[in-house]
Amino acid sequence: MDIQVQNFAITNLRRRPLVVETGGFVAGFTPDTDNPYLNYATPLPGVEPTERDVAALIGAFRERGLLPRLEFAPEAAPGVAPVLRAAGFGTEAVHEYLVCTPHTLMLPPSAESPYVENPTTGEEFADLDAALAEAFDGAFAPSAQGAARLRRTQRSGGAARFVRAPQGGVAGGASCSPPAEDTAELSGVGTRPAYRGRGIAAAVTAALTEAMFARGAGSVWLEYSGEGSRRVYERVGYRPQGTRLYLSLPRTRQP
């Protein structure tokens, strides 16, 4: 699964508005933001980069004023991390990823599950973006660009789903990338603090996963942020499969 997830990451980055490929790395950039989670690189499976390759990659980020940063499955490219660390890259995080297949998917009982909707209007996409910004405690600010990215994800073959708040707006939601390499990545599952504990995350996760299977994906994968969220995903049918490594180059260490 590590190779499949890594190949997916490459294909997904190549969908970005600006792509740079150098020395066995693929970097995907989003020009309307400097958010490091939307501007990063990943290696080709099995690549063994040189110091010169890493320097060229760093240059691609620095000339755009961005933090040099990578996300990848280390087992798919074991020769990469040592060379990056030698260049000064440090570990941001190591995340376990979980995978769901059509055979493991467990849909919540409809009588007990919140009603999940598909955003269709500009207002709904904006409300979803705002809800996710609040759910992730201000890690990113709600914006017209964020709402537009959610809309593009859906238009390009991915999906977004949300649960409406009782007083209007969005209580929680998520999005899923378009399938590639027979898999898809479900990301950004978030619920506003006032509505947590009501089964929203599980309902949205199940709905998005089911939608990707209906579009022919053989699996869907995601990363979790804590044991609480892991339990939610496991109830839906997600199972541990591997790890993903996040590395970045601190500004004080840039050559």
Rank of each mutant, 00 (worst) to 15 (best):
G65K: 12
P255H: 11
Y37M: 14
F8E: 06
G188K: 00
S175R: 13
R198A: 10
E48T: 15
S225K: 08
A147Y: 04
R64V: 13
R155V: 09
S248H: 15
S177H: 07
L18S: 12
A159W: 01
L98K: 02
S229L: 07
Y233H: 15
G59K: 06
L98W: 02
E75V: 13
V232G: 03
P119G: 09
G190I: 10
D137A: 14
D34E: 08
G199V: 11
E48I: 12
W221L: 06
A203T: 08
I10L: 14
S225R: 12
R196S: 11
E181D: 09
L105K: 11
V47C: 05
V20N: 03
P109A: 15
A9M: 10
A81T: 08
E181F: 00
T91Y: 03
A133C: 10
D53L: 09
A211E: 14
Y115W: 10
D137K: 15
A135F: 07
F162W: 07
D2C: 03
R253N: 14
T209I: 05
N35G: 01
C100R: 02
T252W: 10
P142G: 06
G23E: 07
T153M: 09
E21P: 13
F25H: 07
S187Q: 11
N39G: 12
A93F: 09
E185L: 15
A203K: 03
A171P: 04
G65V: 14
C176P: 00
E48C: 09
F213D: 07
E210I: 02
G228N: 15
A165D: 07
D53K: 13
S219P: 06
P108D: 03
L107Y: 07
A214G: 14
